[in-house]
Amino acid sequence: MDAVIQYAPLLWQGLLTTILVTVMGGALCLVVAFTAGLARLSRHRILRWPAGIFIEVFRGTSLLVQMFWLFFALPFFGIQLHPLTAAVLALGLNEGAYAAEVVRGAIASRAKGQTEACIALGMDPALRLRRIIIPQSIPAMLPPFGNVMVDLLKNTSLVSLVTVADLTFSAQMIRSTTGQTTAIFITILVMYFALSYLLTLLTSWLERRFALDRKALTLQRKENALMKVGAA
């Protein structure tokens, strides 16, 4: 256990990097998910096809291959990415391709009647998506998004293979200098587990927050409270 204590600052740095990569990768993932997912649903082939190819390619090949490609192969085209950039890019694009399918699925499964009601009210397609269809789809997207984010968090460990000094990278360093393999790996397993658990908590909090009838429930509670005041 002394290695863990002695190298605590290094592990702390690693943890911060892991969190940083998760947050940046997650943000990119969301952008990619909505862009590709909505493009996939477009009426225009010019949008639909590239999005489809992007999604299939990034879901169909390994994240590690993608990360290595950005890190090792891209320089041959004269583009040298910072390891952190390559890592975040690969994570965001890869998980974003999965999340795009979540977006597509949630929106496509919206009842046809909702779109028709929008048309009957004269709403154009952009307004329909922005005000009605996307807000309605959020509750259905949240649980699978939560899974994607946990996946993304766990996959950040791969960035250690392209020299980003995350939690796994730090652990490997400490292992090779101290040889205290068991203690160090148990420690980071527990740390990853704690992070995953936090993400799960966050997701279920968001689920409650965005539940369709929640808004009305709060409004009603206020109303009831007022009525009680009035009656008293």
Binding site: A111, G113, A117, G122, M123, Q136, K215
Partner: peptide, 20 residues
């Protein structure tokens, strides 16, 4: 009916007058 389930009755009604 095809009401918007994520909006209150009032919001359902004012949505299109405001945005359209």
């Amino acid at each position: 009916f095809n009401l918007f389930p994520h909006m209150t009755a009032l919001e359902n009604i004012i949505e299109a007058p405001i945005h359209v």
